[in-house]
């Protein structure tokens, strides 16, 4: 014989238990998701770390210089190519006082130089600057090494590589 009150209580208990298990499973599932996300984040961060090292490696000034020489018609700016705005002559009809304070200032105070410009502004096609570049002690092969090779070299030093 089951009284109605007991019945209600039993149903409530069963419901509460069921809900508890449901929540517990959900929590453990979320927990799993969280640690998976954390693992992914760590993996990505490590990848970013490696990529930063590779970026620095690829930005070696010597390598950039070689690439610039090979692919661009640019040379470093020389002193003779620089002049202040005050060195630019004013057009005849603009002889009135210059209103721009910036131009007026530099013109009056600094008297910047206009130096003999011996460097051609646009690089001629034929005479590449091979003299300077070929006179380096670094092995040319260094430039074509991949980052992977460098890593291999770094970790293959005697005593560090090989199976234990």
């Amino acid at each position: 014989m089951i009284r109605p009150t007991s019945l209600i209580l039993m149903v409530l208990t069963a419901a509460a238990g069921g809900a508890l298990f449901q929540i517990a499973f959900e929590v453990s599932e979320l927990d799993g998701d969280l640690s998976q996300l954390n693992r992914d984040i760590r993996k990505d961060r490590e990848a970013i770390h490696v990529l930063r090292a590779e970026w620095s490696f690829l930005n070696q000034p010597e390598r950039l210089e070689e690439l610039t020489r090979r692919h661009l018609d640019l040379l470093p700016v020389s002193g003779g190519q620089l002049a202040g705005s005050g060195a630019v002559p004013v057009r005849a009809q603009d002889q009135e006082p210059v209103t721009d304070p910036l131009i007026a200032d530099t013109g009056a105070a600094a008297k910047p130089a206009v130096l003999q410009d011996t460097t051609p502004k646009v690089k001629p096609a034929a005479p590449r600057r091979t003299a300077r570049l070929s006179s380096q002690t670094t092995n040319r092969a260094d430039l074509v090494r991949s980052f992977d090779d460098v890593l291999r070299e770094a970790i293959d030093t005697p005593g560090s590589g090989g199976a234990r």
Binding site: A53, E54, S56, T138, D142, F147, V150, L151, A154, S160
Partner: peptide, 20 residues
């Protein structure tokens, strides 16, 4: 973990190096 010097010999005497 391994120590890596992306710029190689360019700053070798300044940065120095570590052992394994």
């Amino acid at each position: 973990e391994r120590r890596v010097y992306p710029h190689g010999r360019l700053a070798s005497h300044i940065v120095g190096f570590t052992n394994v």
